[in-house]
Design a binder for these strands. Sequence first.
DNA 1: ATATAAACGCAACTACGTTGCGAAATATAT
DNA 2: ATATATTTCGCAACGTAGTTGCGTTTATAT
Lengths: 166, 166
Amino acid sequence: MHTSSQIFQEAGLKPTQSRLEVTGVLAQSEYPMTHQDILKELPESFDRVTLYRVLDWLLTNGVIHRIAGEDRTWRFHINNSDLTNKQTTRYNSTPTTSKSNKLNQHSHAHFQCENCGKMFCLNDVHPKLTNDIPPDFVVDSIEINIKGKCVNCAKPLEPLVNPDHR
Amino acid sequence: MHTSSQIFQEAGLKPTQSRLEVTGVLAQSEYPMTHQDILKELPESFDRVTLYRVLDWLLTNGVIHRIAGEDRTWRFHINNSDLTNKQTTRYNSTPTTSKSNKLNQHSHAHFQCENCGKMFCLNDVHPKLTNDIPPDFVVDSIEINIKGKCVNCAKPLEPLVNPDHR
DNA sequence: ATATAAACGCAACTACGTTGCGAAATATAT
DNA sequence: ATATATTTCGCAACGTAGTTGCGTTTATAT
């Protein structure tokens, strides 16, 4: 087991205090978190703009991915892929400006509960590429968003309504 | 061929001036439009809040569907299904508060161009998943968002950059 | 014709995210 | 080690999409 710091170093990514803190928070959550969710887990003093920028940076470097929820806010989740053997960016290289990174090809499906608002990564559910997509359209990524009721809320009794994730 | 007004009447939906105007605009567009896009096609005097409310109403009554784009804004598109033989709501019935309506089961895929921002409905592309969604999760709808380059922008020369749809 | 309900128009407001810019921290060169 | 350049950080102000409250207008029911 490596620390976030070590993983960053080995991957050639500059680990700052902020980046490590945010990565730590995201690494511990099994479901995608909103900006707010994350901020709540960070020290009071953590600047919200810095968080936006760190998330941006983690995105472009393939450490995390984000999903658009039904409520028009992004949710962020750590990538389970190992960075070390794929990342080529160096400390002093200019990072790509594009937010689509090479690692983020792992496009699995996401599920958002219509009751409690929580989002889940369905790591095993992948889109099957159909050849129905019109030619001349170049596909970069396929996103699957499933809506319905999650394990907790599907139960007939005492649905879990969590206002934190609305 | 029916007019929007006739279709609404037959479906038991109250057609107001605003609703007909908005429906008219949406019916003429082959791609999903943002709130801004639509507003631009309406008379100057048309109130933006009214537009939001009309869109809401069209949604709950299954006349249109909406898709979340990469830019956190909704895009609206008319449903190709015929309303007349499916809609049961009456003038004086209380409409369902939920925005998931019965007609909107037609979940086809959507494609958003990363270059010009335009969104396309791929009516023939339907969700296909590699694996089964975990039991205990109740699925209401599956949304597929494909990102890449559209017909126009995939061409090597003179990519079509339309700032209106960014 | 009068009462009731739905739709509309306007202003103010909320939430998420972005931009600009100076200060602090970190890296690079001499 | 010191000076210079680059990156990151923190704060304030801004932008945009969408919402809420409320009074007015329009449509429907008796």
